[in-house]
């Protein structure tokens, strides 16, 4: 049976791990490669790097980080932040990433997703959807690290991205991100039901019960979390044991 995944996310900026609340107020959480190594040893199912500065100048630093991590951690690696061309995807894959996550550029140019999927396969292309609730059962897509509204409905947009070739949707609730109030269950459920591809839930994990809850109640394929792991509050192993105890299939050990 396919197991649900637990994915620690490292938000990186200038070669360091950072974690903010509601996409601002950044706090240094350490050397990304060191953290990656720890998560690998703890049995993480996958690692995510998100370059939150996503500056052109920082590109080399990010690629170097991916290379260093991939040389030591023999596990799937997703990298996002500032991916805006097929060449960016290629560079990440060559550096050792398995999946490139596309966010702002997909809104600007949806065909980028289909071109990248045709070139490298859908399994390499994750579309990151940052969604903010704007009404009863309505969520809007935001870009530029959550600063810019797009007018797009998050559920429709996720469906469209899957149709264009995204192999996975990384769904972040901006309302919950950094709040530690739990994942947005309603948003997650709606997107899972709308798309044929796997969905990763992100934003809001404050305790291990939140992870078990979103997995149990929405059918989401994976949970992503950052601060709950970075500051030593919980290990990956603890998270997985809590999820398993809730009766959800998860890979224990390594």
């Amino acid at each position: 049976m396919l197991k649900r995944r637990v994915i620690p996310c490292l938000d990186v900026k200038d070669g360091r791990t950072v974690k903010g609340i509601g996409f601002v107020d950044l706090k240094d959480a350490g050397d990304p490669v060191e953290l990656a190594r720890r998560y690998d040893a703890e049995g993480a199912d996958e690692l995510a790097f998100l370059d939150i500065a996503a500056s052109v100048e920082g590109r080399g630093t990010l690629l170097e980080l991916v290379r260093r991590t991939a040389a030591e951690c023999f596990m799937p690696l997703m990298v996002g932040g500032g991916v805006s061309t097929v060449e960016d995807v290629r560079q990440l894959l060559l550096a050792g990433a398995d999946k490139a996550s596309i966010n702002t550029a997909a809104v600007r140019e949806p065909e980028l997703v289909s071109r990248a999927a045709a070139k490298f396969g859908s399994q390499c292309i994750t579309v990151a959807v940052d969604a903010k609730q704007v009404g009863s059962a309505r969520w809007e897509v935001f870009t530029h690290g959550g600063r810019k509204p797009t007018g797009l409905d998050a559920v429709d947009w996720s469906r469209r991205m899957a149709e264009l070739g995204a192999g996975e949707i990384l769904l972040t609730s901006m309302d919950r991100d950094g709040s530690q109030a739990g994942y947005d269950l309603e948003l997650t459920r709606r997107v899972v039901e709308a798309v044929p591809v796997p969905v990763i839930a992100s934003g809001g994990a404050g305790g291990l019960d939140h992870m078990a809850q979103v997995l149990a109640e929405t059918g989401v394929s994976a949970v992503l979390a950052a601060s709950i792991f970075h500051f030593g509050r919980h290990t990956i192993g603890e998270a997985k044991r809590a999820i398993a105890a809730a009766g959800i299939p998860v890979r224990l050990g390594r």
Binding site: L2, K3, R5, Q123, G167, E168, P196, G219, S221
Partner: peptide
């Protein structure tokens, strides 16, 4: 029908 394609993740 609940299983997504691509199959992505760890399987036995």
């Amino acid at each position: 029908a609940a299983l997504k394609v691509p199959q992505t993740g760890w399987n036995e």
